[in-house]
Design a binder for these strands. Sequence first.
DNA 1: GTCTATAGGGTGATAGAC
DNA 2: GTCTATCACCCTATAGAC
Lengths: 223, 223
Amino acid sequence: MDGAAPATKDILLETAGELFADAGLDGVSIRAIAKKAKANIAAIHYHFGSKDNLYMEVVRHVMNQIRCTLAGELLTRTEEWRSDPMRCADVVCQLIEERMRQFFPDAHPRWYGRLFMRMLLNPTPALGKLAEEIIVPDLDQVTKVFRLCKPSMTETEARCWTDTLLGQLGHYVFSEQFAQYVPKKNIYDSEFVETVYRHLSRLLLKGLDLPLPESLKDDCFEE
Amino acid sequence: MDGAAPATKDILLETAGELFADAGLDGVSIRAIAKKAKANIAAIHYHFGSKDNLYMEVVRHVMNQIRCTLAGELLTRTEEWRSDPMRCADVVCQLIEERMRQFFPDAHPRWYGRLFMRMLLNPTPALGKLAEEIIVPDLDQVTKVFRLCKPSMTETEARCWTDTLLGQLGHYVFSEQFAQYVPKKNIYDSEFVETVYRHLSRLLLKGLDLPLPESLKDDCFEE
DNA sequence: GTCTATAGGGTGATAGAC
DNA sequence: GTCTATCACCCTATAGAC
């Protein structure tokens, strides 16, 4: 609203986000948020009006930050790739890479993905509307790209591949939260992320009958 | 504890479970549980001691109900299938079917899966220990079966396939909760469940280099 | 914009009658 | 085993001084 807003509001937004991501809307009090942000409880109401509004703003902020827009962009220039299987394969790999950045980020905090998953599990009408504007179109566009890569698929079949991609990545967001209590679980280091990328790429390229790029063939020995 | 316990305790368990599955531990008050179960607030403390204990008992109950034990059983008689690709394919399909019953159940209430996912997102040391005893071994055994089906895989690669299976099914548990606020989302009817089963079967069989059974080939036209 | 003080309501838990 | 009454606590939100 105001042009030169001080940092307090942003600090509150980030702090609240991290806490919400870990414990959910009901699991965090505005007292805890204010304490961690070294701000005052009343400041939250001053800047956001209410706890619910703060949560909504946090979710909106995170949704916009982790948004995946590549599919939409690719659909504006389909003639560049749709008829060439090698380019289709490259397009699919790019989509996987973008989606992985959403959940295994370098650029933004790790808890963004957790908050996103939590938002899915605790929907409200307002959140649903927000998601309908931001997430649903993005996913529909990914599904459309997949269908262009393999036109023989039905809409539902293509959707299954989108769900496979999203499901596996979402699964790791969960597991990471849970892993702290299960000692032997592996850590999500860069090596693991690379393994997941290769797994998803092979899986989708095979499923969409696209050729595997050389870089994915290395350790792909048939039995 | 007592031999001929009346129904009240069980009613409380089921009622609390459904409410916890929808709103989480923090999202439900014991007053709401008592009201819906037509029981008294004090009865909850009498039977379970505390709200946290009630939650633990609910989770333990659900975990035992939706437990997947087929992989463990298959591992006791590997010589019957491991050397025959067709039988390996059958084994994999059986594992998918069992796992789908866990999330798209006919036998038990739909909210079991939701509670399970919520438990993963809100871990506590006690829940972690419980999961370590029940879930982790089951999943390890599934991974072991996959490795026997395709011995050239590393442990981590095999784990990725387990995660693919679990992730996709978990993803639908989420989406179902969220779908009520996103009008155009499809309903999870039996036709959809069948589509998902075929999708996962093809995906895993292809990935594990196993033959596709006739029943999965019908609409599998190559482009 | 920031802070203190406080209102007003919901929470989990318990004591004690039946 | 079940119920009522009640306690002590924590919560969100707001009023008003600075």
